[in-house]
């Protein structure tokens, strides 16, 4: 298997690893000293900000993965 094909298979392997990890975990609890339970506008703001940043990052990463897959497909078609 070439290095490009390994790159192209990375999303599948990563998704499988994430599913295994999620099924093994019973729950994650944030420390209440650092993350107080009270709901405030700042908490909502941080949540939205993290969501926006993760969304933007996901879009960019999806672009990189699509590009890696395209290169791998081209390599398979014309080795």
């Amino acid at each position: 298997m070439s290095s490009l094909e390994r790159v192209a298979e990375f999303p599948t392997r990563a998704a499988a690893a994430a599913l295994l990890w999620l099924s093994a975990e019973t729950g994650l609890l944030a420390c209440p000293v650092c993350f107080r339970f009270e709901e405030s506008a700042v908490t909502d703001g941080v949540r939205l900000a993290v969501f926006v940043l993760i969304s933007v990052t996901a879009v960019v990463l999806a672009g990189f993965i699509a590009f890696a897959r395209r290169v791998a497909q081209r390599q398979r078609a014309d080795p």
Partner: peptide, 16 residues
């Protein structure tokens, strides 16, 4: 990524 970070900061400041 650069503008995404700024839009994220906007979301935080506006909501809070």
């Amino acid at each position: 990524m650069l503008f995404g970070a700024l839009f994220s900061a906007y979301a935080l400041l506006r909501t809070a």
